[in-house]
Computed example of a mutant assay.
Amino acid sequence: MIIVVEGISAAGKTTWCHQRAGEYLIKESYPEKRPDRHADPSEAARLWTEWNAKRWSDAVAMERAKGLAVCDTDPLKLHFIWALWQVGEAQEADWLSQLEFSRAAVSDRRLGFADRYMFKTIDPLLAQQQRDRDTARPRPNFGLHLRLHNSLVRWYETIAKVMPERLIWGLPGMLPSIEMTANPRRYDLPLFDRFIGLLPGRSGGP
């Protein structure tokens, strides 16, 4: 079983993961040199997809070994470039390029849908207060993350439209019970396409 924990920076997801996930945790991570989509959008999309696929592979390996993996942020990570496009911080071509690479990775079973998504919504003022109290973690892009919050909520609302049983709003007091049955929709490409088709466009319309 693979669980994804999501929310903007300072929402409390990483704290929850460290307190609840323990040995099952797949930490949020980034390449040492982050791809530059301004220099080469297509190559950046490819490299990000490869990194995301590595995190997914780590989650699958953890699940195989221990029955459960808890991911601090979604390995698919496609929501991020979509949200950047929604707020005008990325071009539509950037979104479409990473979508193309990610779709191919789902088709190849190198990325997939999680079994549970837990999304922590948060009031921007509270997030700001939590950021200010957490002096141990630098958050240089915190202002941008606040702007992304509503778009990320829309992304997971769309997840709930196609997989309502998969989404939990908020972070529960304990981990959900482990499901041992195989997930037949993990690499369901028609479901992926349906989900993408339901996402709002840049203007906020369908």
Results as ranks from 00 to 15, higher is better:
1 M>P: 10
3 I>P: 01
7 G>I: 02
13 K>Y: 03
16 W>M: 01
17 C>R: 01
22 G>C: 06
25 L>P: 01
29 S>L: 04
32 E>I: 12
34 R>K: 10
36 D>T: 13
39 A>K: 15
39 A>D: 07
40 D>W: 03
43 E>N: 14
43 E>F: 13
48 W>Y: 15
50 E>V: 11
51 W>L: 01
52 N>K: 04
58 D>S: 03
59 A>K: 11
60 V>R: 04
61 A>H: 09
65 A>W: 02
65 A>H: 02
67 G>S: 02
67 G>F: 01
74 D>H: 02
86 Q>Y: 05
87 V>Q: 01
89 E>I: 06
89 E>G: 07
91 Q>M: 14
92 E>D: 06
92 E>Y: 07
93 A>E: 11
95 W>M: 05
99 L>P: 00
100 E>C: 13
101 F>H: 13
102 S>Q: 10
109 R>E: 09
112 G>T: 05
117 Y>D: 02
119 F>H: 11
123 D>A: 09
126 L>P: 12
126 L>Q: 15
127 A>F: 03
128 Q>Y: 08
129 Q>D: 14
130 Q>W: 14
136 A>S: 15
137 R>P: 01
138 P>D: 11
141 N>D: 13
141 N>V: 15
143 G>T: 04
143 G>W: 03
147 R>M: 08
147 R>L: 10
154 R>T: 15
155 W>S: 08
155 W>A: 06
158 T>G: 02
168 I>F: 14
172 P>L: 01
173 G>C: 11
176 P>A: 03
177 S>R: 08
177 S>M: 09
178 I>G: 00
178 I>Y: 00
182 A>E: 11
182 A>G: 07
184 P>G: 00
185 R>G: 03
185 R>F: 05
189 L>T: 04
190 P>L: 05
192 F>Y: 08
193 D>I: 04
198 L>E: 01
200 P>T: 14
204 G>C: 13
204 G>D: 09
